[in-house]
Design a binder for these strands. Structure first.
Lengths: 241, 241
DNA sequence: AGTCTATAGTGGTATAGACCAGGATTGACC
DNA sequence: GGTCAATCCTGGTCTATACCACTATAGACT
């Protein structure tokens, strides 16, 4: 269980992942105390500052917590790194569910004033509309309608989005990486069309979500309206001041 | 514009706040390059590692971004310190609604295993339970049940929480400042008790939320279970990668 | 037994120096 | 004029050391 100083992977990352593995394997359990920074430093033959770099990362991620004068401890829950900014496909993969989709609509339309406002583009400019029924293990979970500025991702619709992940295509083909999003979520009763598509028997509760996603340069990548089955979807968010 | 080495405030925090002030005043504008780490180090008479501590904090917060081999730059938006981590009272104030509460329960209980896990405290240790009906302009909006570690805020319950804001008391009296939270939101149909308290006529949709709130030291401040009226509450979240 | 007081250990802060890979600039060369 | 290589600067990583405030413990004292 040693660190490799010649590896291209930084030592503090190696140590961080080593600790995460120990926690995942149960060798370190919640509220266990870790060896002190000085012990880790000596044990792995690296300096204390490097140890601290690894530990601080894990504290920031919520995996560990520290108590000055006492020690460093394993947190109760090891939250999965950020559900926050992943698409449906990635979320399902994380939950070990098989994601699939049925494309309900895939066209280019002129931006309505409302959508133009959300996307921060001119009205009537080209907007890609992608409406899909989302399924997990073949069972309907959500209806998702995404609007994207056509100039950011021309020819997007040549992909088959019944199988392809929108976020994966944006990232790999167009270099568009979501980094922030503003979401609004509310609860409501399913209407007739929603009940039909989601195979619900009214009355049934659904989660309605709107989201505007931006990249690091603060450009709007997409505006999405989604409707989730209340009984098959929970909505995680990690908030920071 | 100097740093004070004798101040109880760490140098890297002082530098961080100094940079934020410069950005707020417009002396540093989006996409401007900051002086290099070595220049800042010499300019303020502190070591480069201390400079990096300040810069890394700001990068983590999204205020700055770095490009290896090029420099450190100001991000496009300095997000409003946001809706994310405020309590019900603050949210209502922002929406120009008059917040009030009816205390349904306010006691100290021994931590159940489940709550102890959420709060990262020992089972059976003292936990403050505060259950309130939340109203906006006299109309019921939510039922909120908060659990707090008693050792963090002893005597909390001597306040009258039908009027006082929990977050304001935590901040002003105990110096407890929420900085991160993990929330889980789902939609459901209101049960009988919820419908009665929220004055709903079934069937009606509600938003159920669980939240674990932590401070900058990653200590758990509270665990909250809330039930919101779907028609009177929208749930905002600002997410970052 | 109970209380106080060193003392040792912990994380938090800070310094000074070093090397690396990658971007940017300059200048020699064709 | 255009190309390529050397050079310098940048952030990224890492070491070794030091002092502080806080916590726990063990031992001396009452």
């Amino acid at each position: 269980m040693e660190l490799n100083a010649n590896s291209p992977i930084p030592l503090y990352i190696q140590l961080k992942e080593l600790l995460v593995r120990q926690i995942r394997r149960g060798e370190l359990r919640p509220h266990d105390r870790l060896p002190s920074e000085r012990e880790l430093s000596e044990c792995y033959g690296i300096s204390r500052m490097t140890v601290r770099q690894a530990l601080q990362l894990l504290v920031k991620e919520g995996v560990l917590y520290t108590a000055a004068g006492k020690g460093t401890y394993v947190s109760e829950v090891l939250f999965e790194q950020d559900h926050a900014l992943t698409g449906f496909s990635e979320q399902m993969q994380r939950a070990n569910l098989q994601a699939s989709s049925r494309v309900l609509e895939a066209t280019v339309i002129p931006a309505t004033p409302y959508v133009a406002g959300k996307l921060e583009v001119s009205p009537n400019s080209g907007v890609i509309l992608l409406k899909r029924l989302r399924l997990a293990n073949e069972k309907p979970v959500a209806i998702e309608t995404a609007y994207l500025p056509q100039n950011l991702c021309p020819d997007l619709l040549r992909h088959d989005f019944s199988r392809a992940s929108l976020y994966a295509v944006l990232r790999e083909e167009y270099g568009l990486v979501p980094t922030t999003a503003i979401q609004v979520v509310e609860a409501a009763l399913a209407n007739v069309e929603e009940a039909r598509l989601l195979e619900l028997h009214p009355p049934a509760a659904v989660l309605r979500m709107e989201r505007v996603t931006r990249n690091a340069q603060n450009a709007v990548l997409e505006y999405v309206e989604s409707v989730y089955r209340g009984d098959r979807y929970k909505f995680y968010a990690h908030l920071r001041a």
